[in-house]
Simulated scan of single mutants.
Amino acid sequence: MAITRRKTLARCLPLIALAAACGMGGAQAQDSYPSKPIRVIVPYPAGGGTDTIARLIGTQLSQRLGQPVVVENKPGASGILGNDIVAKAPGDGYTVLMGITALVQIPALYKKVPYKLGDLAPVSQIAKSADLLMVPRSSGVTTLQQFVDKAKAAPGTLNYGSYGNATSSHMNGERFKQKAGIDITHIPYQGSGPEMAALLGGQLTLAFVDATGAYPHIKSDKVNILAITGSQRHPALPQVPTMTESGYPGLEANGWFGMFVPASTPKAIVDKLGAEVASIVKSPELNKRLTDMGLIAVGSLPDDLKAQVDKDAAHWKSVAESARISMD
């Protein structure tokens, strides 16, 4: 028996030593991180909301971590190019992605994607947004039910605008049509700016406008805001009901901005980054900047964003499949 125990112990010792080394390695990685500049990949052009948020976070992160944080814009293929750069980068915490909701929608919209969603590890959800359902005030429509009744009375004669094909607004619009049982024509625009201009100009009878794009116009006397997508009312528009409150559930998913790193990144580094970003977002300065952009600040930790990603990926896949929305 003694010999057997000695043999068993002999076999276990290398494993115990390896486990201890891995634990120490993770702790050492966290303690020494970062020791060089960090680059934040923005998969969209400079000047947009994603870029702005990346630079705001990057400035604060640099001050906290004592290393330069460089924002690099890598637009292309609806964000796939930039996402792929980070998914295939070394898992050392020095390449970070500033992602948006499209990250979890892409697998449902494209047949071939060069990376898997699981190749990226969530770090922190920075902020969330939603789409506002807006109509020209001249239409006389003041509630969502009035619009639905009007659409049912004249099938195929009304329209709705989105800020682009296969965007959240397009998918929300198609889900709304299904839930309401109405026939309205989709008109896509290249962004919320042109879409908002078309609504104000009377070319649209309804528009799903991102809250950030609609924010400068929420008090305009030319529009009525009927409802908002997402899971909660917007703090700046407490009187505007959610789609669920209006009787049309199934549009509870929010848009969001979040940071990710390659999945092979040590958990100690992911947790350290997540804690720093969450703290930055919850600071009065960043909170106000995000609020001024029409966003709702979040500042979550990695596990919370992971749960959100899993939930949203399933939701948008269901919407894309049922509405037959595809980019292929």
Rank of each mutant, 00 (worst) to 15 (best):
P68Y: 00
I126M: 08
A87K: 05
S326F: 10
V240D: 01
L18Y: 14
R39T: 15
Y248E: 07
Q190G: 12
P136C: 00
G49A: 00
G191C: 03
A108H: 03
G48S: 06
V209Y: 06
M134G: 04
N254F: 06
Y248A: 11
L109H: 09
Q190V: 04
M171T: 07
R11F: 15
N165F: 14
G118S: 15
G76I: 02
P75C: 04
L132V: 11
T142C: 12
G91T: 02
K282L: 11
V123W: 02
G294P: 08
A17N: 13
E174S: 09
P68W: 05
P155L: 01
I296Y: 04
I38F: 00
G161R: 05
P90E: 00
V135M: 09
T157M: 02
E276A: 13
L200N: 01
L15K: 05
P284I: 06
I80Y: 04
V261C: 00
D183A: 00
K282P: 03
H234S: 03
L305Y: 04
I218P: 10
G294L: 00
P68N: 07
T167N: 08
R64E: 13
G181I: 06
M196V: 05
K306Q: 10
A227K: 03
T142E: 04
K128M: 14
V70L: 12
L133W: 03
S35E: 15
T101E: 11
A197W: 01
A320H: 12
S246Y: 07
S168F: 13
F176G: 11
F260E: 01
K288S: 10
